[in-house]
Nucleic acid binder design. Structure first.
Lengths: 329, 329
DNA sequence: CTGAAAGCGCTTACAG
DNA sequence: CTGAAAGCGCTTACAG
C-alpha cells in the first residue's frame, strides 16, 4: 500500500479510502490510485486491515464438525459455505472426532485466528470454556446438538421424535422384536436422543427393548449386527440410529441373506438407499437446512442482533421405500 | 498482552518471549507471566503475531475443491486436515463448482487472509493469475487435476489408465458395444482424461465409440442413461466416468430392470456399491492418498524446500464386484 | 536475561 | 476532499 501511495503520489490514507470504497474521494485521485493498484498488482492484506478496523472483523468463520468426510456433515458444510459466501466470509472447517479435547483445541485455534463466529457440532464435553470467547465477542451457534453449560443458539434435528416415528412405523406393520443399533449415547447427544425416542415408543407399546452395545462406524455396526442375526434373540426388525450404522446393517443383512426378511429403518438418509434391494426406508435429516439456518443465525449475531437465544428443531420425516415395510416373519 | 505485562510487572517483550517459548527467560519471570496469563484468561492474537513475524506465517492453508460435499472431495479434505493438524495449521475449505471465476475469487480471498499455501483442485480456466501469488511466496499444490499455464506440483489419479483398464475389462468379457457417460470434458480435466482412456482402449480393439452427451450430477446422468436404454443403439455395457454419474446409472438401470443384463463399471468408488444388486465394479480412486500427498508436498514447500516441481500419479486399481463381469446379452 | 523502541500493513480520528 | 500522525496487538533487533 505504501508503494501504491508512492506511485500514485497520494497519502496512505487516500489509498486506504479508495480500497475501501469510501465515498468522499475525488474521481481523479481515485483513478490514479486504481491505476497504481493495477500496475503493481497490489492486494490488500485483510489481516492487517482487520487489526486496525473498529469492528475487528476478519470475514472468516469456523465450522467444527464431527468429521468433514461424513456425508451428513459434508452436506451441512456445503450449505454453511453457501450462506457464508453471500456474506463474503471464508470458512475454516475441522473435525473433532467426538474428542472434547480436540474440539477445544480447534476452537482455540479458530479464535486465535480471529474468526468472527463459530458453528459447532459439539462433543459431549463441558462447553463452559466458550463463555470467555462469547464474552470476547465471538458469535457462536450450535448445530446438530446443543451445548452443555452455556446458553447459546442451537439448531438440531428432531431426533427423539424421528426415532419414535421409526419404531411406530415398524410396530404398525406388526413388529414386536425391534432392535436398536446406534452410536455411543454417553458420547454423542444425537445417539442418546434417538435411543430415548426408541425407548419411549417401545414402552408405549409395552414392548421389550433390545438395545445392542454401542458401535462407532460401519464396520463395528456390521459385526455387531452379524452377531445379533446368528444369536438366539433374533429380532424381526432393526432400527439403525445413524447413517454409518445403517450402512453396516445393510451389509450385515446382505451377508446373512436376510435383507428381505428382516425389516430395517435407518436414521439419516444414505446415498443409493433407494437403489438397494430392498430400498432402505429412513427417517431423513435435512442437513442443508441445519447448515443454512445455523449460518443465518450466526450472521445475524455477527451483525449484532441481540435477542434471546433460539433453539430450532428441524423435522425428520419418515421416507418409506421398502425395507421398513417388510412384515414380521 | 499489554495487560498481562502490567499484571506481571514485566515488559511486553518478556511476555512475548514467554508466550513464544523463548529459551532465555528467567524461570521466576516466566512463572509470573504465566500466572498473569491464567489469571486474565489471555489468548494471543495470532493474526497480529503473524503481521510482525519474520516469516509472516499464519498457520493456515486453503483448500479449494469442486464441492466439499462430494464424497470424493470430502474424503480428500479429511486427509488434508489430518496432515495440517500435525503441522498446527487450520484449513479453509471452499467449493468452486467448476466455475473459474469463483475459483479465482476464492483464491484471492484466501491470499488476502494470508494463507501460507493453497491446495487447489483447479477448474478449466487459465491459472496464470496465480503466478503473482507464487512469487509472493504462497505455496501451492494442485490436486486431482493439473493447472494450466503455471508450473507447480501436482498430484492426480491415473485417469486415462484407469478408464482404459475399465474398458479392457469389459472387452475381455466379450463386450463390444460399450457406452461412455461422463462429465463435461471441456470443463473438467478428469472427465477429458477418462474419455481419452476410453477412446484409446476402444480404438485399440477396433470398436466403435458410443459417447453420450456430457452430464453433470446424478439426475442428468439418470435421465441420459434412461434415454440410451430405450433407444435403438442400446449398449451391452456402460462405463460411467464419475461417482455421481455412476449413481445415476445405477438408478437408471434399476428403473429399466436392466441391472442384471447390462454391465457397469464406474470410475471412483461409491458408498454401498458392494451392497447393491449386483454389486458395482469400479476403478477406485484413493482420495485419501491424493489429499495426504498433496498436503505433504505443500508443507515441504512451506518449509522452503526448493526442488523441481513434481507430478505424482496415484494408481487406480479395478475392483471387480459383479456388475462389471456381466457378459453381453 | 530484560526492556525501550521501532515497525509489520493497515485504518481512523483529527486538522486543515 | 486530503494528509500527517497515532495506533491495532504483536515481534524483533538493539542496548544494556
Amino acid at each position: 500500500m505504501k508503494e501504491v501511495a508512492a506511485v500514485a503520489g497520494v497519502s496512505l490514507a487516500t489509498v486506504s479510502r479508495v480500497v475501501n470504497g469510501a465515498p468522499d474521494v475525488a474521481p481523479a485521485l481515485a483513478e490514479r490510485v486504481n491505476d497504481a493498484i493495477r500496475m503493481l498488482g497490489y492486494r490488500r492484506d485483510l489481516t492487517a486491515s482487520m487489526l486496525r478496523r473498529a469492528d475487528r472483523a476478519s470475514a472468516t468463520i469456523g465450522l467444527l464438525l464431527e468429521d468433514v468426510a461424513n456425508p451428513f456433515f459434508s452436506a451441512l458444510h456445503r450449505s454453511v459455505e453457501d450462506v457464508a459466501r453471500t456474506r463474503g466470509h471464508l470458512v475454516f472447517a475441522g473435525s473433532s472426532d467426538e474428542d472434547p479435547r480436540r474440539e477445544r483445541e480447534l476452537v482455540e485455534s479458530l479464535v486465535a485466528r480471529g474468526v468472527d463466529g463459530v458453528i459447532i457440532a459439539p462433543t459431549s464435553g463441558d462447553h463452559g470454556y466458550l463463555l470467555r470467547d462469547r464474552d470476547a465477542g465471538v458469535a457462536m451457534v450450535f448445530v446438530d446438538r446443543p451445548p452443555r453449560y452455556i446458553d447459546a443458539d442451537s439448531i438440531v434435528s428432531d431426533n427423539q421424535g424421528g426415532a419414535a416415528r421409526a419404531v411406530e412405523h415398524l410396530v404398525s406393520s406388526g413388529h414386536r422384536r425391534i432392535a436398536f443399533v446406534g452410536d455411543r449415547p454417553e458420547l454423542v447427544y444425537t445417539a442418546a436422543e434417538r435411543l430415548r425416542g426408541y425407548r419411549r415408543a417401545m414402552q408405549e407399546h409395552g414392548l421389550e427393548e433390545l438395545v445392542l452395545p454401542p458401535v462407532a462406524g460401519p464396520e463395528q455396526a456390521r459385526a455387531a449386527i452379524a452377531d445379533l442375526l446368528t444369536g438366539a434373540e433374533k429380532p424381526t426388525a432393526l432400527f439403525t440410529a445413524q447413517n454409518l450404522v445403517t450402512i453396516g446393517a445393510v451389509l450385515a443383512l446382505r451377508d446373512a441373506g436376510l435383507q428381505h426378511s428382516i425389516a430395517l429403518v435407518g436414521f439419516d438418509d444414505v446415498t443409493l438407499a433407494d437403489a438397494l434391494e430392498p430400498p432402505v426406508s429412513v427417517v431423513a435429516q435435512d442437513a442443508a437446512a441445519l447448515g443454512r439456518q445455523a449460518a443465518e443465525i450466526l450472521f445475524a449475531r455477527i451483525d449484532g442482533e441481540d435477542r434471546p437465544t433460539q433453539h430450532v428443531v428441524v423435522p425428520t420425516p419418515l421416507i418409506a421405500r421398502g425395507s421398513g415395510e417388510i412384515p414380521p416373519g
